[in-house]
């Protein structure tokens, strides 16, 4: 079945380190996305036509362009057209942050617009200043709503990072392929075992995070 290959040499360790590369890229992009996306989301609620139009185009671009196409544009296109030489990892970080910020911005905008007007009116009638309203009334509600959604964004980021092997980053799938190729003669069936293990590794990385998001969502429902 091909599982024996994993026990040879340091193959199992190499796979885990490959997963580490994927997780590192996704966590860095997720942190950038959450920070930038929050700012963008607040900007989108400002009702300034120019800003609104700009973000509409940005969000629609991200909505319809596959991340793989964006990766190719940044990694191959930028080099050819402008002579900018990015490492594959930088290109991946740029693309995933670009994508993630748009997703996050839309979530923040949704959460902000989902706060009923009554909340603002009641705060004002209780004598709170605008800043106090944001700090003590609106802020905590938004944060509660956003934490599960941001955690979900992290799992989506991890899943999307599997694409980086297509621009030559050696992450878990690529390491898997290398191990399979290197052991082609000795264990020709390695592909089954290795890819099954990688499948389960991704599951092991994402499932706990999804469960946490679901748990928090339920806990803070009201």
């Amino acid at each position: 079945m091909g599982f024996e290959v994993l026990l040879k040499g340091n193959n199992a360790l190499r796979l885990l380190m490959g997963l580490g590369v994927a997780l590192r890229i996704s966590l860095i992009s997720a942190v950038i996305s959450i920070a930038l996306g929050t700012v963008f989301g607040v900007l989108m609620t400002l009702k300034k036509p120019a800003i609104t139009a700009f973000f509409r185009i940005y969000l629609e671009t991200v909505r319809i362009m596959p991340q793989m196409v964006l990766l190719f544009i940044v990694y191959f296109g930028a080099t050819k057209a402008r002579g900018i030489n990015l490492t594959a990892e930088t290109a991946a970080l740029i693309v995933f942050s670009f994508w993630g910020s748009a997703e996050m911005a839309d979530l923040v905008r949704g959460a902000l617009q989902g706060i009923p007007k009554i909340q603002y009116e009641s705060s004002t009638s209780l004598g709170l200043s605008t800043m106090q309203t944001d700090r003590y009334v609106i802020g905590p509600q938004i944060i509660r709503r956003m934490i599960p959604l941001s955690i979900n964004l992290i799992t989506r980021m991890i899943k999307t990072t599997s694409l980086v092997m297509m621009i030559g980053i050696v992450e878990v799938l690529k390491v898997g392929q290398q191990i399979i190729e290197a052991n082609r003669k000795v264990s020709p069936n390695a592909a089954f075992g290795i890819f099954l293990v990688i499948f389960l590794l991704y599951f092991a990385a994402c499932w706990p995070i999804s469960l946490l998001a679901k748990y928090l969502e339920r806990k803070w429902e009201n």
């Binding site: 079945m1 091909g2 799992t155 991890i158 899943k159 999307t160 990072t161 599997s162 694409l163 092997m165 799938l173 898997g176 399979i180 020709p188 069936n189 390695a190 592909a191 089954f192 290795i194 890819f195 099954l196 990688i198 499948f199 991704y202 599951f203 994402c206 499932w207 999804s210």
Partner: peptide, 20 residues
């Protein structure tokens, strides 16, 4: 299937399953 990437699923279906 919600917690794994499509690329990973495809590799398993396309390269893994023929081995069994």
């Amino acid at each position: 299937f919600r917690n794994t990437p499509l690329l990973c699923q495809l590799f398993f279906l396309y390269f893994g399953l023929p081995k069994i």
